[in-house]
Write a protein that binds this DNA or RNA. Structure first.
Lengths: 65, 65
DNA sequence: TCGAAAAGTAAAGCTTATTTTACTTTATGA
DNA sequence: TCATAAAGTAAAATAAGCTTTACTTTTCGA
């Protein structure tokens, strides 16, 4: 699953820790998701969508399989 | 997390088993999600969105908290 | 009303998401 | 260059999603 978290962070000049804080998850979770190590839960995806005021599909891109 | 799976099924006259089959998960998983016992994974939410040709947010409604 | 299909439920087990701790590597700015 | 912040990584532990099996309850049409 690809995502635009890094870009969205960059646009706001946020660190991974800043984003983790805003999403109420650990910094390592943000890092792992950005690096594609695992997918966020649906509730976390919703939280990111609310935070960035974007649809989930614009932040996360599934690779259908 | 609320969702419209039951309605979307009804519109198509699908059983839980039919939907489970289309989503490639077990019938119990569909049942549990419909009944709000747990949230689907993000990949599964994407699969449902593709299946019904709807945005994730129109199928699943987060209760922010 | 009876039987079958659909829905609901539950436990055990496996997989994946997330945390915590802790360390290494990379970028950055004084 | 050197110190520090940021990013990357990893292992162990816990939580949540999902499967399989199996059983009970509800729905519904003949």
């Amino acid at each position: 699953m690809k995502n635009k978290l890094k870009v969205l962070r960059a646009e706001r000049d946020w660190t991974q820790a800043d984003l983790a804080n805003a999403l109420e998850v650990s910094r390592q979770t943000v890092n792992a998701i950005e690096k594609g190590k695992f997918d966020p839960s649906l509730p976390l995806a919703f939280k990111a969508a609310r935070l960035f005021n974007l649809p989930i599909e614009e932040i996360f891109q599934d690779e259908p399989g």
